[in-house]
């Protein structure tokens, strides 16, 4: 079969309802027949991915066999709860709130993270100031692997950013990952208590580019939207009737105390553009062909292709299950 010419609509689903049906049928089979579980637990954040995942689970198992769990902690955005409740109400599923702040205090998640930030920015006062980590724009188009900076937003609104040395970077990430791993633990508690499966919410980019925490949000029994581009997740969201407020929300990391979009933290480009570029790269469209359609320079697309290749290679560790074939 010849490859279609690259175009801006190439990523759009041929039939949204058919895709939903295919995913739902497979999910029902995988959970019921392969995993032999009788329902689904979904961690809901009020974001688009977990909302679509919950709606698919309801289609597959019926609302009475799906549990939505909200897992806020003290750094979470207050809006998340409101959106998650709206979603649960719309789909008629039971919803529970499990605040994981206490567990995180026990792990010293916040203390360990803030200690590392203070070593770099001693003026940081975690009780009053906010923090986030990210890659400054000047480094985004570099051919070097990304180097993270920590930014403290002080109480008066002023900001200070410093490059993170290896030990501090690793400590901040390792401490923050307690959040996703604690959520996973709580989801498995509820899943095991009901003989349900944990339905993971990562989309294709998160899986392939490694934007997830191993044994955290990457710890699940099935990931029904793990092969969908973000554009396609939005297509499904509209078809499934996800509330508009959720569809229109900007995806955030909801991990650090300062506000931060996923684009700013990790992807570094709007998802519509990233979807098309990733599709082009994954399906061996030349940089020249893709650049022409997306009104970009060929060298820029080549650079992005290289970055994708590097991201996939360097995050392979996250996707690998424990190696046991000794």
């Amino acid at each position: 079969m010849t490859k279609p010419e690259f175009n801006k609509d190439i990523i759009k689903l041929k039939s949204i309802s058919k895709t939903i049906e295919q995913i739902t049928t497979k999910l029902k089979h995988d959970v019921g027949k392969v995993l032999k579980r009788r329902g689904a637990v979904v961690g809901i954040s009020g974001g688009i991915d977990s909302s679509v995942t919950l709606a698919i689970a309801v289609k597959a198992f019926g609302a009475k066999n799906v549990l939505g769990v909200m897992l806020p902690e003290k750094d979470s955005n207050d809006d998340s709860k409101e959106f998650a409740l709206k979603l649960a109400e719309k789909f008629g599923v039971e919803v529970l709130e499990e605040n994981i702040s206490g567990a995180l205090e026990g792990f010293e998640c916040y203390t360990r993270r803030d200690e590392a930030v203070k070593r770099i920015i001693p003026k940081f006062n975690p009780a009053k100031d906010k923090m986030k980590i990210g890659i400054p724009e000047a480094f985004i188009n570099s051919n070097l692997p990304p180097v993270f900076f920590v930014t403290v937003v002080f109480e008066d609104g002023s900001e200070q950013s410093e490059r993170l040395p290896m030990n501090e970077y690793l400590q901040i990430v390792a401490a923050s990952n307690f959040k996703q791993r604690s959520r996973m633990t709580m989801l498995y508690y509820h899943a095991e208590a009901r003989h349900y499966a944990v339905i993971g919410t990562p989309n294709k980019h998160e899986v392939q580019q490694g934007f997830f925490v191993k044994f955290g949000d990457g710890g699940a029994d099935v990931m029904p939207i793990g092969n969908l581009y973000k554009t396609q997740v939005y297509e499904l969201a509209r078809e499934l009737g996800i509330p508009n407020e959720i569809i229109e929300r900007t995806p955030t990391t909801d991990t650090y105390t300062a506000e931060q979009t996923q684009e700013e933290f990790f992807y570094q480009m709007p998802f519509e553009m990233m979807d098309l570029l990733w599709y082009g790269w994954e399906n061996n469209y030349s940089a020249a062909e893709v650049a022409k359609v997306l009104a970009k320079e060929e060298v820029e697309v080549e650079k992005i292709y290289k970055n994708f290749d590097r991201k996939r290679k360097t995050t392979e560790y996250l996707r690998l299950p424990p190696i046991h074939n000794y």
Partner: peptide
């Protein structure tokens, strides 16, 4: 070093240190 996959972000940070 980077194109051949010898080094990644962590490698670069270790080298800087």
């Amino acid at each position: 070093l980077f194109e051949q996959g010898i080094f990644d972000s962590m490698g670069l940070l270790s080298l800087i240190t």
